[in-house]
Design a protein around this nucleic acid. Structure first.
Lengths: 213, 213
DNA sequence: CTGATATGTTAGTAAGTACTTACTTATTTT
DNA sequence: AAAATAAGTAAGTACTTACTAACATATCAG
């Protein structure tokens, strides 16, 4: 009877590649089946590793989703393009902002689905990140509109509300197409939809006196 | 050894009150913890009945959510108010439509959360109901706008896109407040938000020639 | 009173699930 | 070559969950 104790293997196992495969597999499965619905066995299989390996990287299942929500959260790509966008005519600028926003949502589609499913049962920290992302978005566009007012014929208004409306249109558009699976029977293409929405928005912010009641 | 067989109790048990308590309890818990996360034990406890009673009404857990999604789905309260709304000035009409829409979403908040969480793993039939609800909403408003064009100075445009934008604004507003838990730090009240959105929308659809490029 | 109906109580089963233990095997580093 | 590192295999534990079986009880119509 050998008394030699197999040390239970160190907890700090590091192989970024494997760790990443686990995270990617988890992202896929969580978004498809929800956090509870996706089992550690499935995640390991999807990642092509042994279930035990998963637990060596993430001693508890919870740590996987926490790391996912923290490291792969939505970053405001919109803020980054603002310098380039300032020089464009406003139709083109808003078109660009809308497209970058939609692209960001598409990139993070899985994460967004997880978040929408799980947000009520997950830590405040993550909620706050999401909210501060939104605030940042709104403020970025609101500032742009304020600047625009100095150069163009733009009404005085609550620019924050306008920005919320703008992103709200595209957010709903995204959710209905990509999450609910709505297909527009009226046959309006994505390009046309974007054009129509922006056209509406631009008329909405434009200065003018008539029609007053 | 008595050979007397206790008949395994008939399957068709009917007590609308109990059935309803189960459905209501399930609605609450599914929306809080998700379909998988809410256990039959918890649902029975919430309904104040024995777990077995639950199974006498719904032999499989799945049948509960199916009945919920079918019998308590969103009905377009918007369509019903259109006759009354036609007579109002358009600002008031749109205000009313927005408020009824928001109220509908609030009433069905739990169901909406379940649907958003579970829509990817649930039958097409339910998806289709949701989509046809949306289509109906959009068409209702689009028709109203078309009529409005005959009486007022309204631009020519794709009214379906305009209707999608209108409801999109309020849908996003609802999701961010009620589901994500966003609180507007800028201190704009709900009434003000609605007013601002509608103001923007009305300017957006109003006819006019200037600003043309 | 009788018997059907709707529920309760208690106990259980079979299948999962997160997570562990014990030990092995490659690969890389020293 | 030795040692450390990152992963694998296989079996199992403790617990939970949807769902069932057996029997008791309360209500109420005929």
């Amino acid at each position: 009877m050998p008394e030699q104790k197999h040390l239970p293997q160190p907890l700090s196992v590091k192989s970024p590649a494997t760790r990443d495969r686990i995270l990617s597999a988890a992202l896929t499965l969580f978004s498809q089946k929800g956090y509870i619905g996706a089992t550690t066995r499935e995640i390991a299989a999807e990642a092509g590793i042994a279930e035990l390996t998963l637990f060596r990287h993430f001693p508890r299942k919870e740590l996987i989703i926490e790391e996912l929500l923290q490291t792969r959260s939505i970053l405001s790509a919109v803020r980054d393009i603002m310098p380039a966008v300032q020089k464009l005519p406003c139709e083109a600028a808003l078109d660009m902002i809308a497209r970058v926003f939609l692209a960001t949502l598409r990139e993070r589609k899985e994460l967004l689905k997880i978040f929408l499913s799980e947000c009520s049962r997950y830590p405040d920290q993550i909620k706050e990140m999401h909210i501060s992302f939104m605030v940042d978005l709104f403020e970025t566009l609101a500032e742009y509109l304020k600047d625009l007012q100095k150069k163009k014929n733009i009404r005085s208004m609550e620019f924050t509300s306008a920005a919320q409306a703008f992103f709200g249109i595209f957010y709903s558009y995204f959710i209905s197409r990509e999450i609910i699976g709505f297909v527009d029977a009226s046959g309006i293409s994505e390009d046309d939809s974007i054009r129509n929405y922006i056209d509406l928005f631009i008329h909405g912010i434009r200065g003018g006196e008539y029609g007053k009641r």
